[in-house]
Design a protein around this nucleic acid. Structure first.
Lengths: 146, 146
DNA sequence: TATATTGTAACTTCAATTGTTACATGATAG
DNA sequence: CTATCATGTAACAATTGAAGTTACAATATA
């Protein structure tokens, strides 16, 4: 999806779900399902009918990797059995407490790192990469941008 | 499995796969499958026949949470598409590079944290917990240790 | 020899994800 | 107004990976 958003930043016409599906080698319905999260978060907009499709709805500088992860779902990295009944075994309680503590720290770091990178940063990386290689968005000559 | 190993530390007879399965509310074959990794790493030994079962094969102070994670499998926390064909799209290459970097840092921290906790530490926690509550390994009075 | 145990292969089940089909809704061109 | 192209979404099928199950061989002990 990152992939798609960056392409959208360099494309002033809407992308249809079908075009996006081709980029990701999947199918249009799956694309639409995934994009719902991004739309609800206000990162993209969709237009129906002829000439419709998906366009960016905000500045890439305002979207971080963490935002994308949350919008797309599945951002809970470690299932620490939240909401389950407290274990009756004292050993289990001790083990859970120790693991929770460790995993929370790791998750906190990851969240921090993901929140520190905006899509605008990635786009800047991409531009630098292209300049260094003398490429356009479609690659040097024969390569396909997907 | 942590659960099981700590119980084993306080139990000088072998545990059968069936007993362990009951603790974990699963079944004996699944237990054996999982224990294979621990046995290959040298943390436990198994004995066949009457009176057989599983016993610890090393000092809990020499096993870290990281070791367990590796031995039990699935310690790769983030699938960064390793070993796949390099993406032909330049956007994708840039995105992958940025993500890899971020995820590697998070993984490194997690590894460090997991490697810092030995099972002996957990057992010590458990003992402290028991002393504080006046419990034996089976809980205060009526509770079942599983 | 009978019994209790691990070792392991083969199969089934289950849940989650992904893909597919079908059709309704809406926008625009002619 | 109608044909066409797009999203929106529900319902269903296919795929996948993990977990559970069954069956039986191998081994150790009473």
């Amino acid at each position: 999806m990152l992939h798609v958003l960056l392409h959208m930043a360099r494309h002033d016409q809407p992308f249809t779900s079908e075009q996006i599906a081709k980029m990701l080698t999947t199918n249009p319905v799956v694309v639409r399902r995934t994009m719902v999260g991004l739309r609800e978060a206000g990162y993209v907009k969709s237009e129906r009918g002829r000439g419709g499709g998906w366009i960016l709805a905000c500045d890439l500088a305002e979207i971080t990797l963490l935002d994308i992860r949350r919008a797309v779902g599945g951002w809970q990295m470690f299932a620490t059995e939240d909401g389950e009944s407290p274990p009756s075994c004292a050993v289990e309680r001790v083990v859970n407490a120790a693991l929770d503590d460790t995993l929370r720290q790791a998750e906190a770091l990851l969240v921090e790192k993901l929140a520190a990178v905006t899509l605008a940063d990635l786009l800047a990386d991409f531009d630098a990469y292209c300049r260094a290689e003398g490429w356009g968005i479609d690659g040097p000559k024969t390569e396909q941008a997907t």
